[in-house]
Design a protein around this nucleic acid. Structure first.
Lengths: 154, 154
DNA sequence: ATTTCTGCAAACGATTTGCACAGGG
DNA sequence: CCCTGTGCAAATCGTTTGCAGAAAT
């Protein structure tokens, strides 16, 4: 976990007059030590490994703070639960491609998309602050060989 | 409502061995007579105007069918409920720009995005089947005049 | 006649919240 | 000390589901 992350969050909390606690610390530690996407419940499990006293309620109360700080991103895939993506810290403009064959999510960046985002917005009289780009696609490998190499998914 | 839409849905239902019912008819009528986005509950209200016997359960049971048929699209904005967008029938490739100032949602199409979708996917070894592009932006008018003309929102 | 559909109301499940105590400043 | 943060358990609320009767083919 990038040591600057915790500092950035505590600066953010400070600005809001919120306190530094062991539970929040454990949740932050867990939230940014992985590069995987996770649900609130996943995070609870991970945070409990850091500090078993962390409760589900605190996770649910902390998540919106992390999102508001801008370091964690809430993702709405078409699925049931909300997912969270900690990788925006290092890759603020990344996008997602979802493999229909193995449901694996691949992150990618593309400057053309970023440029288009601005151009299109400006054309309509807007100044963009963010975007969500999600592509759903079939794996060519699956098409040709009948199986998807990434299919190591849980 | 485009008369072909109902036919297309009933063809779809037929393929699945499902029946034509007055309630489904009312829901379909309501679902595609508007160009607004709506929630399941919104649709219930609209469908009840067509046929008061329509119940919430039937709306919830019909919505996934319409989505599966490809004529209705489920949209995950960051908001609480699921929204549905009936405009993919006429504009299968449209995207959304959300005005942060008035929360209004503007639909737009852009061939460059469509091209990029294919190029980027291919580069990674995929064949795209669909995309979600959502831009969040500030209204320049708001920036300059202090108010957003579109702010006639509910 | 057979099978799917429906409305109703109860169930569900992720998330939120009220409360009394714990802990940071 | 004061005020915020916490765990617990109960509440919330959009959505799903079991059931018995209604409707479609």
């Amino acid at each position: 976990m990038d040591s600057g992350v915790r500092q950035r969050i505590y600066d953010f909390l400070d600005t809001k007059g919120l306190r530094k606690t062991t539970q929040r610390d454990a949740i932050i530690e867990a939230a940014f030590t992985t590069t995987e996407h996770y649900t609130a419940d996943d995070l609870l499990v991970m945070a409990k490994k850091v500090d078993p006293s962390v409760s589900r309620a605190t996770v649910y109360r902390t998540l919106p703070l992390l999102v508001e700080s801008g370091l964690l991103r809430e993702m709405d895939f078409g699925r049931d639960h909300k997912f969270y993506d900690p990788n925006y810290v290092d890759h603020p403009n990344h996008n997602h491609l979802i493999c229909i064959d193995c449901t694996k999510i691949i992150e990618f960046e593309d400057v053309h998309i970023d440029t288009l985002e601005v151009c299109i917005s400006k054309r309509m009289g807007f100044t963009p602050t963010g975007k969500v780009v999600r592509i759903e696609a079939h794996c060519d490998e699956m098409q040709q060989t009948g199986k998807c190499r990434r299919q190591v998914d849980s």
